[in-house]
Computed example of a mutant assay.
Amino acid sequence: MRSTVDRIRQAVSFELIGILIVTPLFAWVFKHPMEDMSVLIVLGATAATTWNYVFNLVFDHILNWRRGNTRKTLPLRIVHAVLFEVTLIVFLLPIFAWWLDASLLTVLMMELSFAIFYMIYAFVFTWGYDTLFPPQQREEMA
């Protein structure tokens, strides 16, 4: 089990390293100035973090109201993940299109690329983090 300090270090390093990788990469791939992409990346990371908290709170309240508990089955977890991503994209799409002065279709492709990048990045980062900072195992109680 990880300590609170370790969880904070993991979350902060995940975001900072992600921003440092994705900003120049996406500025180059999508041919936009680094400054424009920096603003969008930080805005996107902040929005995703904030929306994650709000979305999960609302989702759990709805589950509790409809089912009397917040347990999630595998299909419900899939619906949860898809709904989170779709609502985040819908929220950010017009903002990104306006900021970049680009079409909604272009920005949609960009956002889907972000989602794919971060899915792969999360896998690689977590694997690397767990290798560098292995979680402490609880000693079994005698």
Rank of each mutant, 00 (worst) to 15 (best):
T73N: 00
L16Y: 08
R67C: 07
V12I: 10
V82H: 01
D101F: 11
T4N: 07
V5G: 13
A122C: 04
T131A: 10
D6C: 02
W51H: 03
I89T: 03
E85T: 00
F133H: 15
S13P: 05
D101T: 15
I19T: 00
F26M: 05
I120A: 13
L100S: 06
V22C: 06
Y53A: 11
V79K: 01
V54Q: 11
H32R: 14
R66Y: 15
A27H: 06
T23V: 09
L43E: 09
I120H: 04
A102L: 05
V54F: 14
Q136S: 07
S113W: 00
L76N: 15
L25D: 04
N56Y: 01
W51M: 08
E85P: 00
A47C: 07
R138C: 15
F26R: 11
R2Q: 01
E111N: 05
L108V: 01
M119V: 12
M37V: 06
R2N: 01
V124N: 09
G18F: 04
E35M: 08
S38L: 07
F96D: 02
R7A: 13
F114C: 05
V82S: 02
M109N: 15
L104T: 14
F14D: 10
F84T: 02
F26S: 04
W28A: 12
V29S: 05
V82D: 02
W65I: 04
K31G: 01
V22W: 04
A27M: 02
F117S: 09
F133C: 12
A97Y: 00
H61P: 09
F117W: 12
V29M: 07
V5S: 11
V12W: 09
I19L: 07
S103Q: 14
F84M: 06
P24R: 03
T131N: 08
Y53I: 08
V39M: 13
G128Q: 11
I89Q: 13
D6K: 13
P94Q: 01
I116E: 12
S103N: 03
L20S: 08
T49A: 09
S38P: 10
F133N: 15
L76T: 14
W51P: 02
N69F: 04
R67H: 13
Y118F: 07
T106D: 15
V54K: 11
L108E: 06
T46H: 05
L92V: 01
G44M: 00
T126K: 12
F125I: 08
W99M: 06
V12D: 09
L25V: 09
L108G: 04
M141G: 11
M34N: 14
N69H: 10
W65T: 05
N69C: 01
P134F: 14
F123V: 10
R9L: 03
I116G: 15
M141T: 09
N64I: 08
V82F: 08
H80V: 02
I62K: 09
N52T: 12
Y129E: 14
Q136C: 06
V22L: 08
A27G: 00
A45Q: 10
L25M: 04
G18L: 00
V107Y: 08
V12F: 10
T126C: 09
F14W: 09
W99N: 07
V107N: 11
R71K: 14
T50G: 15
W65R: 07
T126S: 11
G44R: 05
L92H: 06
M119T: 08
V29C: 09
H32Q: 07
M34C: 10
L74Y: 12
F55W: 01
N52A: 13
V5Y: 07
P24C: 04
D60G: 05
G68C: 02
A48V: 10
L93A: 03
V54M: 12
M37T: 00
